[in-house]
Every structure is written in C-alpha cells, then in structure tokens.
C-alpha cells in the first residue's frame, strides 16, 4: 500500500510537470488525463470511492472531451512534444525544484505517513463521502441552489461571449 501510494503520488506530480512544462495543448491535455487518473488513485487510497468516481466521470468524461475539441480548434502544424528542447528545459527545471523542496521534508516522512488515516477501511461497507455528498440535498440545499444558478449564469456568459461575432477566423454562419 505504501509503495502504491508513493507511485501514485509521484505520477500525480509528474503529470502536472508535464502540463506545466509548456508542450502543445494536445500533450498538455494528455498530461491532465494522467493527473486526473492519478488523483482518482489517491482518493481511492484514502478511502473516498465516491469522490474518486465523480472525478473520473466528470473529468475524463466531460471536461477533457471539451478540451480535446478546443485543442483541435487551436491546432498547429508543428506541435511541440516533451522531447523538444525548451519543453525539456522547463521539465528539468520544474522536476529539480520539486525534488529539492521534497528533500527538505524527506526526513520527516516515515513509512506510515504515506498511507491514509483510516486503517482497516477496506472492511467497512459504507463510506462517509457518499453520505456527506448526499447532505447537499438536505442541509446544504442553498449551496446546491447557488451552484445550479451559477451553472445557468455560465450558460448565458458563454452565449453572450460567443454570440454575434461576425469577424475573424471562426465566423458564426
């Protein structure tokens, strides 16, 4: 469990290094997929299957499709992968920074600090996060209303931003 946690956390950080090191957007989106998948792994390891499922479905099912579409929209003929020189430079610099900072804390990390807080959590039938999210329908009802209202507002924001533009590359026909 400790080793799996170590591996997952390491890939989590590595995935964001891949996003942040400025490759072409397709590859950055791929890095974000890796980050989201590893984030699901971290959440499962800490005993939150429902939140992990939500992250997996919403992120990989919803948002990354949209990002892939937008990457296709903003496509370029000569993409930059992680092999090209400026990207490699950024990656090396970011990784060196992460390793240096983690070396500061390395002494304080013992074996059980990698695991999660709930021991023997595998034996329990129900997890707290499912019930906690369900609280949004009772006690946190106003938060649900606000979120739904913001999603509606965003719909109008997007429509107003992209409507009525008659110049430029992508014309509204």
């Amino acid at each position: 469990m400790t080793f799996i946690m170590y591996l997952v956390l390491f890939s989590f950080v590595l995935g964001l290094v891949a996003v942040a090191s400025n490759p072409s957007p397709y590859f950055a989106a791929l890095g974000l997929v890796v980050v989201a998948g590893m984030g699901c792994g971290v959440l499962v390891g800490h005993g939150g299957p429902f939140l992990s499922l939500v992250l997996f479905l919403i992120y990989l099912g919803g948002m990354l499709v949209v990002f892939a579409y937008s990457a296709a929209l903003a496509a370029e003929p000569y993409p930059e992968t992680w092999g090209s020189r400026p990207v490699v430079t950024y990656m090396v610099v970011y990784l060196a920074g992460v390793v240096l900072v983690s070396a500061l804390f390395w002494g304080g990390w013992y074996e059980s600090s990698w695991g999660s807080a709930d021991e023997l959590g595998e034996f329990s039938m129900f997890r707290g996060d499912m019930a906690g999210v369900a609280l949004m329908y009772s006690a946190g009802g106003w938060m649900l209303v606000i979120s739904a209202w913001v999603l509606l507002l965003t719909l109008f924001v997007v429509l107003e931003l992209t409507r009525g533009l008659s110049r430029g590359a992508l014309r509204a026909v």
Binding site: I146, V150, L153, T154, F156, V157, E160, L161, G164, L165
Partner: peptide
C-alpha cells in the same frame, strides 16, 4: 464562490461590444 460569481458575471459585460480590444481585455 462569491468572488468567482463576481468574475463570471462581469465577463460578458466587459466583452459586450465584441471589439478585439474588449475581448483581449476580458
């Protein structure tokens, strides 16, 4: 959340004339 709602709500007001400068500022 309040700050985010604020930012989201002013964005179309800023870009309402669809001028390149306005869109860039937004």
């Amino acid at each position: 959340m309040g700050l985010e709602i604020n930012t989201l709500a002013i964005i179309p007001l800023m870009a309402q004339h669809h001028h390149p400068r306005a869109v860039e500022a937004t």
